[in-house]
């Protein structure tokens, strides 16, 4: 597969390490009430879509960016690649 890195252009997927569902960005707050239930869901529950899937890839043999790649799990077509940092910010993550 080829991943079109937002900064570096097309790169072979072999340069990347796969992590999993991009929902891992949405880490719950650890000190609030109900943290244990929220972390259970965060750590263990995943959708397994036949179709578009947003997932985290790490450009380990490259610039060490974490990317959010939107990939069709049926065809392997990649329809979007974003810097995970930008995605995290857009989902309200900061410091």
């Amino acid at each position: 597969m080829i991943i079109d890195h937002p900064l570096l252009g097309p790169c072979d997927a072999q340069e990347f390490t796969y992590k999993g569902d991009a929902c891992l960005i949405d880490r719950p707050e650890g000190l609030g009430d109900g943290a244990e239930a929220a972390f259970h869901d965060y750590a263990y529950l995943r959708d397994n879509p036949a179709g578009l899937h947003r997932e985290l890839w790490f450009h380990e043999q490259g610039d060490r960016s974490w990317l959010v790649v939107t990939r069709n799990t049926l065809t392997h077509e990649i329809v979007g690649v974003e810097l995970a940092r930008d995605v995290a910010r857009s989902r309200g993550r900061g410091r």
Binding site: K19, L24, I25, R27, L56, F58, R64, S65, W66, L83, A84, R85, V87, A88, R89, R93, G94, R95
Partner: peptide
């Protein structure tokens, strides 16, 4: 650590 830095706390 890069995951934590970029994906969890991007503004640190």
């Amino acid at each position: 650590m890069e995951f934590a830095r970029q994906c969890l706390w991007p503004d640190m």
